[in-house]
């Protein structure tokens, strides 16, 4: 019953943290805008008064872009460099903002002003950054050993049939996907613990993250799977709705922007629900531990 209880209280706390979620959305929006706005400018400048943009009505038209010649090359290098920069800046920003979110989605902080939110962000930024870095590193290493190494081995081997190659990669991918919720649990428990224990160091929080994740593994893992499932459903909706939606008028494009941003806010909501549910589950585990200790003392 811990799962539904945690999900329920997590959901309520997330609803209470709606202001914080909007702040997070706004910060990410501004960050991405810094990258996308100049890109949009260079696109409109490059195409100028050409009517080739009509060819883009049916989606991306590779020819229309490659015909830009040198302008296309500079747009592409701006795109890749911009995406990389946004990712790095996003890493820092995300560590900062999740510190606020984890601080918010707790029983004792249902109401949270923006200054309180940013206070929590700043207070735990360093530790959250370290936790994110370490867990990302662990995920990266796991990816290397579970996906990249087997892929390299089977592709270099001359005797492995292509069916075996395919099956190997499917198995490797599945193993990685099954491991991913565990890493997310560790990351979330670590940060939930850190948010609840200001004095704890990042390393001890990660240690706690592992111990929480494995002390109540089956329920934690099932809950994480359910939370991921919710995000996957949203992802499917987004993929069905957005890429094929190709408005041709300014009004249509504006509507697309609004709907896209609403869907992204929903995504942030679901992610925060994950943080909140894991926090709630942590509280349950801690309470259970305390009861056990109490019983022992009796």
């Amino acid at each position: 019953m811990k799962i539904s209880g945690s999900l329920r209280s997590g959901f309520m706390w997330t609803l209470n943290a709606k202001n914080s979620i909007l702040i997070v959305w706004f910060c990410i929006f501004i960050l991405v805008l810094v990258f996308v706005f100049p890109l949009r400018r260079s696109l409109t400048t490059a195409f100028g008064a050409s009517m080739i943009t009509g060819k883009l009505a049916d989606g991306i038209n590779i020819e229309a872009f490659t015909d830009l010649g040198p302008a296309f090359k500079s747009i592409m290098s701006f795109f890749t460099a911009g995406l990389m920069f946004t990712f790095l800046a996003g890493f820092l920003l995300n560590s900062f903002l999740t510190a606020g979110l984890f601080g918010n989605v707790r029983k004792d902080s249902v109401k949270c002003s923006s200054s309180e939110f940013f206070g929590m962000c700043a207070g735990n930024f360093g530790a959250f950054l370290l936790i994110s870095l370490l867990i990302t590193l662990i995920i990266g290493i796991a990816f290397l050993f579970i996906i990249v190494v087997p892929a390299a081995i089977v592709s270099l081997s001359e005797t492995v049939s292509d069916k075996s190659q395919f099956v190997t990669m499917v198995i490797a991918g599945s193993v990685f996907l099954l491991l991913l919720p565990v890493m997310l649990l560790v990351a979330d428990y670590s940060r939930a613990f850190k948010a609840a224990n200001e004095d704890a160091s990042a390393f001890s929080a990660i240690g706690k993250g592992f111990s929480f994740a494995f002390s109540n593994f089956r329920e934690s893992y099932m809950m994480m799977l359910l939370l991921i499932l919710a995000q996957v459903i949203l992802g499917v909706i987004v993929m069905l709705l957005l890429p094929g939606w190709r408005p041709v008028t300014g009004g249509g494009v504006f509507l697309l922007l609004i709907v896209s941003q609403l869907l992204f806010i929903l995504r942030l909501f679901l992610k925060t629900w994950r943080y909140a549910s894991v926090t709630s589950m942590m509280n349950e585990i801690e309470a259970g531990n305390t009861r056990t200790i109490d019983k022992m003392e009796l």
Partner: peptide
């Protein structure tokens, strides 16, 4: 010129 397709992208 119609900027809509580029803005959409």
């Amino acid at each position: 010129p119609s900027k809509a397709p580029l803005h959409r992208i």
